[in-house]
Design a binder for these strands. Structure first.
Length: 918
RNA sequence: GGGCGAUUAGCUCAGUCGGUAGAGCGCUACACUCACAUUGUAGAGGUCACUGGUUCGAGUCCAGUAUCGCCCACCA
């Protein structure tokens, strides 16, 4: 066959070579160019904690589709790569490694620990990049950034200082979520609520004077050691006389008051609430309101503190058991029942989160949230699918101040310096040393670099804050810090605001919303116009795929087995817009099979083009084109329109399905089959039809692979390269220039040219398809093979006007239905011993002497009759309905009449054919 | 407790103007000489979760119910 192409598409022999080809030729690169319009996407930076999951595959495939599509449309498309240092996550990974080695971060010390994390980061980062390359991601690698590289660190410090000077960053002693395992503060977003089977204990606090006492119900008995009051609802008649009395806190033997507060729910438990200001957010608020002391009975590591008296040193859970046992011994435990409730856990280590009072840095969110709400309301930022807008508002409207300090080592060190010679007047004197050096109780100076002199006392001794910033404090700057901010770079000017953000909805609040806030605050502009939120990739059991669950197949292994294109295409195909996708291994076969189909279609085309002198010279005047040519060009045009429109609306799977459907079931199943006789006929008089077919098929394949390229970049480039010279000539004719010929990456995205729309050709071809299918069906039903014996068919038309049209399809019909003789005419008689296919406006009689089984034929006709009768019944009902005739649109009624007439006719003809057999 | 999503063929899911329900896989039968068995041809298979409403007409719009899932949330 002249061409040395394997019968199976082999991704392994193609992908690495083509990726190198693209990268070496700079096809991924974008630089500011005032003559061209930019299109920008910043990658949601993967965490450097490990390898990528199939969730990342979906995320990055969608981005690559957008970028490649826009690039083909002529945009100067930039896809900005980079990774995130993922503070707490990465630190835990490395700490676990150290633990396995029998050491710890404390043993290593801060500096050596951080060095170690950098090593791990480098290793993981390399793996991640390799995975992204394998996937075909057209990222501009020259621009790769990392949230802790020098430039981004500068941006982080700049932002901290600016917000501090504006009063939007402050330090306060407040109740925050605390992870005892990591020993750090967490924001709300880093806490996951899980349902826990706990208990509810009823504990009696005896009155100091007199008999009896107050019984409280609690889920956390161990915190009673830190109780400083019992609260009841002021309107609760049961406790009217109790308010103001004193009770004895059991085990601690401390006197505490009974206070009144509306917060207390009369219905829950006993209606009396123990108040532990240091260990419960509500109690904290009530404690502050009533001026209660807040003894901390639980230490940062989750054990009981000195304030817990006899219980000190016990783990908080062991302490719970001890407290319960001791109360029981004292006869103060009145009741215990199981109680299911939601409890916060650390999103990285699953440890039960402890509400904890500590001195932390915060960002005031309200002022930032207001503007961020407005840009969504006025649609400057749009959410896809739009329902996420509501979720966004909910987050924006309820956002509490953001605790940004973390007691970790891996991250951006907080640029706060404490004077050792004078104290911070804002701090409670109890919370800092009484005299110099003041440590972190010293007067704070916020500055990107170490200050020289204390503005309060002129002192020169400083210590820097030990803590680092929350990971998201660098992530929220990502859309502009990656482009060079705070410098006013050309990149920033040209590529910002970016165009599309593609991410999963689970980080809508803590990442997307914050980026919008940051963009507006620091650049006075939105960071991106469209936010596309895709579903989550789940394992077959419905669970989310994640690194921590370890239930994501290795994308590299999947690509080794099926190819990158197959994985990309399949994962897009199974992901309906905004819906979660259930991954399974055999779904990837869809993409692999499709790639193979396209490959073989291309082989067929290439093989048969070999002898074509120059298809590019073929002018496709309508007169030169056969029915099938006009049909396939019309179908192609519709596919281009559908796919383009779907992409505009972020309906990736719809675009993918449209292309799949066209390539497989129209191009391959019909067009390629139909033109085989034409391209193989070497007779001199057959030259023009042959050239026309070759020209059209080249055009169609060319457009098909362009459409498919964003979804399956490798195979389409490989085919493009094989089509090579022809593409160059075609491109030159179309004014596409030499660049386009060099790589499909820069070939223009197809235009839906309405000149090629041909409804008449589509209708006629559909008729041909129906006839062919009907004859094939009869063949099968009569037990005949696909193409042998060749059959004799009589096509009897109802309308003389249709004769010429059908006559023109004679060759098509004979070839596709494997006929040896076809008679076409008006109202032809049915030959004896033939089977009949009743079709709109015609009947096809298949001569079956010696083969026909009358019972089979009767059954076949009766089945059809039954089906038609069912439809007719529905149609009759409609037309008998006066309201329908009066109120339905005219076209619909008209259509119904036609339908009805056709059905009646069909039934009549089926009955006639059937009668003949009786 | 609040919000959101889902419920369509045996399985996994499409179905963005309301007008006789679609795909892939699986299944059945047949076919490896001319691109592809990772294939082709033909076929079977559905009360569109349920109830009510709007409408000439509802898988599609509205209300409610049930089941599953997700997100948010400081009732001890």
């Amino acid at each position: 066959m002249g061409l040395d192409l394997p019968t199976r598409y082999d991704p392994a022999s193609v992908e690495k070579r083509l990726y190198r080809f693209w990268e070496e030729n700079g096809y991924f690169q974008a630089d500011p160019d005032p003559k061209r319009k930019p299109y920008t996407i910043v990658i949601p930076p993967p965490n450097v904690t490990g390898v990528l999951t199939l969730g990342h595959v979906l995320n990055n495939t969608l981005q690559d589709i957008l970028v490649r599509w826009r690039r083909m449309q002529g945009f100067n498309a930039l896809w900005q790569p980079g990774t995130d240092h993922a503070g707490i996550a990465t630190q835990s990974v490395v700490e676990r490694m150290l633990d396995a080695e029998g050491t710890s971060r404390q043993a290593l010390g801060r500096e050596r620990f951080v060095e170690r994390v950098w090593q791990v980061k480098e290793k993981h980062n390399a793996v991640i990049n390799e995975q992204l390359r394998r996937l075909g991601s057209s990222l501009d690698w020259r621009r790769e950034r990392f949230t802790m590289d020098e430039g981004l660190s500068r941006a982080v410090l700049e932002v901290f200082v600016r917000l501090y000077n504006k009063g939007l960053v402050y330090r306060d002693k407040f109740m925050i979520n605390w992870c005892p395992f990591h020993g750090t503060a967490l924001s709300n977003d880093e806490v996951e609520h899980q349902t826990v089977q706990g208990g509810l204990w009823w504990i009696r606090y005896p009155f100091k004077e007199g008999q009896g006492g107050v019984t409280v119900a609690t889920t956390r008995p161990e915190t009673m050691l830190g109780d400083t009051a019992v609260a009841v609802n002021p309107d609760d008649p049961r406790y009217k006389d109790v308010i103001g009395r004193t009770v004895i806190l059991p085990l601690m033997n401390r006197e505490i008051p009974v206070i009144a507060d509306e917060y207390v729910d009369k219905e829950f438990g006993t209606g009396a609430l123990k108040i532990t200001p240091a260990h419960d957010p509500n109690d904290f608020r009530i404690g502050r309101k009533h001026g209660l002391a807040a003894p901390c009975v639980i230490a940062p590591d989750g054990t009981m503190s000195e304030e817990a008296g006899a219980y000190r040193g016990l783990d908080r859970f062991a302490c719970r058991e001890r407290v319960v046992a001791d109360l029981r011994k004292l006869g103060l435990l009145e009741k215990h029942e199981p109680h299911e409730h939601e409890v916060g856990h650390c999103y990285r280590c699953d440890t039960l989160v402890e509400p904890y009072i500590s001195l932390q840095w915060f960002v005031r969110m309200k002022p930032l949230a207001e503007r961020a709400r407005k840009v969504a309301e006025d649609k400057s930022v749009r959410f896809w699918p739009p329902r996420w807008e509501t979720m966004y508002y909910h987050w924006i409207d309820t956002v509490p101040d953001w605790p940004i300090s973390r007691q970790l080592w891996w991250g951006h060190r907080i640029p706060a310096w404490y004077c050792q010679d004078c104290p911070d007047p804002k701090l409670d004197p109890a919370d800092r040393p009484a005299e110099p050096p003041y440590g972190i109780g010293g007067y704070p100076v916020v500055s990107a670099t170490q200050p020289e002199k204390c503005p309060q006392c002129g002192g020169t001794r400083f210590v820097q804050d030990e803590d680092v910033l929350d990971t998201w404090f660098s992530s929220w700057l990502w859309p502009f810090s990656t482009l060079g901010w705070p410098d006013e770079t050309a990149d920033l000017k040209y590529f910002y605001p970016t165009d599309t953000l593609v991410t999963a909805p689970d980080i809508l609040g803590f990442w997307v919303a914050r980026m919008i806030m940051a963009g507006l605050e620091f650049l006075d502009d939105i960071p991106f116009r469209d936010v596309y939120l895709h579903g989550i990739v789940r394992a077959e059991d419905g669970r989310k795929m994640s690194k921590s669950l370890g239930n994501s197949p290795d994308p590299i292994a999947v690509m080794d087995e099926f190819g990158a294109d197959a994985l990309r295409f399949s994962i897009v195909l199974i992901t309906a817009s905004g819906q979660d996708a259930y991954y399974s291994h055999d779904k990837v076969a869809i993409g692999r099979n499709f790639a193979n189909k396209l490959w073989n279609a291309s082989r067929l085309v290439l093989t048969n083009l070999a002898e074509s002198p120059d298809v590019a010279d073929m002018a496709y005047g309508a007169g030169d084109l056969a029915l099938e040519d006009r049909w396939v060009l019309s179908r192609l045009t519709r596919t281009i329109a559908t796919a383009s429109q779907a992409l505009e609306g972020f309906n990736f799977n719809e675009a993918a399905m449209a292309i799949y459907e066209f390539v497989w079931h129209e191009l391959c199943d019909w067009y390629l089959e139909v033109i085989k006789p034409r391209v193989r006929n070497a007779a001199p008089e057959a030259t023009a039809p042959r050239f026309a077919a070759q020209g059209v098929v080249t055009h169609v394949l060319d457009n098909a692979i362009r459409l498919l390229h964003p979804f399956a970049p490798f195979i389409t480039e490989e085919v493009w390269q094989h089509l090579g010279a022809r593409m160059a000539r075609r491109g030159a004719l179309a004014g596409e220039g030499a660049d386009a010929a060099a790589s499909i990456m820069v070939a223009p995205w197809p235009q839906a040219d309405e000149r090629w729309l041909d409804p008449a050709a589509e209708a006629t071809f559909a008729q041909v398809q129906e006839i062919v299918r009907a004859i094939r069906n009869i063949r099968k039903k009569m037990g005949l093979a696909d193409r042998t014996p060749r059959l004799r068919v009589t096509l009897s038309l109802a309308d003389p006007a249709a004769e010429a049209g059908m006559e023109a399809c004679r060759g098509l019909l004979c070839d596709q239905a494997a006929l040896e003789h076809l008679e076409i005419g008006v109202s032809l008689p049915k030959p004896p011993a033939s089977a009949a296919a009743v079709l709109p406006g015609m009947e096809a009689y298949v001569a079956l002497e010696g083969v026909i089984d009358l019972d089979t034929e009767r059954k076949r006709l009766r089945d059809q009759l039954a089906r038609a009768a069912k439809f007719l019944e529905g149609s009759e009902r409609k037309l008998a309905n006066v309201a329908f005739l009066e109120k339905a649109p005219k076209e619909v009624v008209e259509k119904e009449y036609q339908q009805n007439a056709r059905l009646r006719e069909d039934i009549q003809r089926l009955e006639a054919n059937l009668a003949e057999l009786e």
